[in-house]
């Protein structure tokens, strides 16, 4: 009688087809990927003594190694600053071109975004390995890796900011016949400057983190010493390097967070 007026669940809803389907898919993927990666829980526990030995040796940091790594740590920060800056300089024109409210040419904008998407797919260490092959071992390869890495990241962050600006000042300048460059300088830049600097600092934070491992493949900085200590099974030194890196990263994060809070 009144039952006819009640909302009827469809067949898919009644039998929870979606839920069961997703669960089955996840279970299948989990089984498949554990087969493919030879996951063996027992092996981890049977080799636990070796792992524990490693932890014990790492928990006795060789503090006198600290004097050796101060210079490469500084070099790491310098690499990050230079790499981020070079990346940002190249990112600005690409970001302006990719912004939908400035560039109305769909083809140009689409092509620009495609290039940026492609650059962003490449992991940092992969770039480092290639640039070490080109430029040889040293910080040059690291700086260029970080420049390309931050170029991809910062151009996306920048064009997303540019797309949110108030178009009023731009239209006002356009109506009095100002050129594109003048409009960008007087109407776009003042609106986005603070966010640009904030995103620059954010990218710098990420680059400091990234630059600490680039040296593992020979791209300069503290990573070179990380690799050396690991190869020599000098885990006390490894522990000092990791601790010092964490301290440096936290200090840079703190400075950058403070500056960003002041800016925004």
């Amino acid at each position: 009688m009144t039952n006819a007026n009640l909302p009827r669940r469809s067949w898919v809803q009644r039998w929870h087809v979606k839920g069961i389907g997703w669960t089955a898919l996840m279970v299948l993927l989990l089984i498949g990927s554990s087969k493919m990666t030879d996951v063996n829980v027992g092996m981890f526990f049977s080799n636990l003594d070796q792992f524990a030995d490693l932890i014990v040796r790492m928990s006795n940091p060789a503090w006198d190694y600290l004097s050796v790594i101060i210079q490469p740590l500084i070099e790491t920060i310098q690499m990050a600053i230079l790499g981020t800056t070079i990346g940002t300089v190249f990112a600005i024109p690409f970001a302006l071109l990719a912004a939908g409210n400035l560039v109305h040419n769909k083809f140009l904008r689409g092509f620009d975004r495609l290039v940026l998407d492609l650059v962003r797919t490449l992991p940092d260490l992969l770039l480092a390995a290639i640039f070490v092959a080109i430029f040889g071992i040293g910080s040059t390869a690291g700086v260029i890796t970080l420049a390309i890495f931050s170029f991809g990241m910062i151009s996306k962050l920048f064009y997303e900011v540019i797309e949110t600006i108030d178009m009023g000042p731009l239209e006002a300048m356009e109506s009095v016949g100002a050129s594109k460059i003048t409009i960008i300088w007087y109407a776009v830049l003042p609106q986005i400057m603070n966010q640009f600097v904030s995103y620059f600092l954010y990218t710098l934070e990420i680059n400091v983190r990234a630059s600490t491992v680039l040296g593992y493949l020979g791209a300069g900085g503290i990573g070179v010493y990380l690799q050396r200590s690991l190869n020599e099974f000098n885990y006390g030194a490894t522990a000092v390097i990791i601790l010092a890196t964490i301290v440096v990263v936290l200090i840079i994060d703190g400075i950058s967070n403070h500056l960003r809070r002041v800016l925004l």
Binding site: I74, E75, I77, Q78, M79, L82, G136, G138, S139, T140
Partner: peptide, 12 residues
């Protein structure tokens, strides 16, 4: 400081 501190030698 950043530019002066890095050595851009080793360029093959």
């Amino acid at each position: 400081w950043a530019i002066g501190g890095l050595q851009f030698t080793g360029l093959q």
